[in-house]
């Protein structure tokens, strides 16, 4: 796996500004400063189609477009289908995890989470940094 480019653009998607700020700050502590935000799946999808990102970190429970629907749209898009996609969500039932996996999620973090978990998943999805 190639070295991780810490300047790669990362899109974080959540309808709670608090969570956006937490993830942004934790990413900053890990050295990832090129972070953009969206507050639902449809806004995120537009940003993904307008600009090249290296990773999506998305909540699930959002309106009008959920994180799961965003994931499905990403995997159905020929230009975006290989994009690493981490779900960070309070949805912690097995059927949610299975649905996300079947839709092509790269990894899955359940809220509340800690910084070590986030870092571990980034390493799993992107490689060591």
């Amino acid at each position: 796996m190639a070295a991780v480019d810490k300047n790669m653009p990362i899109l974080i998607v959540d309808d709670y500004k608090t969570m956006l700020r937490i993830i942004r700050n934790l990413l900053k502590q890990l050295g990832f400063n090129n972070v953009d935000e969206a507050t639902d799946g449809s806004q995120a999808l537009q940003k993904l189609r307008d600009k090249e990102f290296g990773l999506v970190i998305s909540d699930w429970n959002m309106e009008p477009m959920s994180g799961l629907q965003l994931l499905k749209e990403v995997r159905a898009d020929t230009k975006l289908k290989e994009l690493p996609f981490i779900m960070i969500t309070a949805e912690s039932k097995s059927e949610n995890v299975i649905a996300a996996k079947e839709a092509g999620v790269s990894n899955y973090i359940v809220k509340p989470f800690n910084a070590a978990t986030l870092k571990g998943k980034l390493v799993t999805v992107l490689g060591n940094f």
Partner: peptide, 16 residues
């Protein structure tokens, strides 16, 4: 700071 950020996730969970 990390511990504070982690702890502040309560607001997201309680909000939901």
């Amino acid at each position: 700071a990390t511990r504070i950020y982690e702890a502040c996730a309560f607001q997201d969970i309680t909000g939901q």
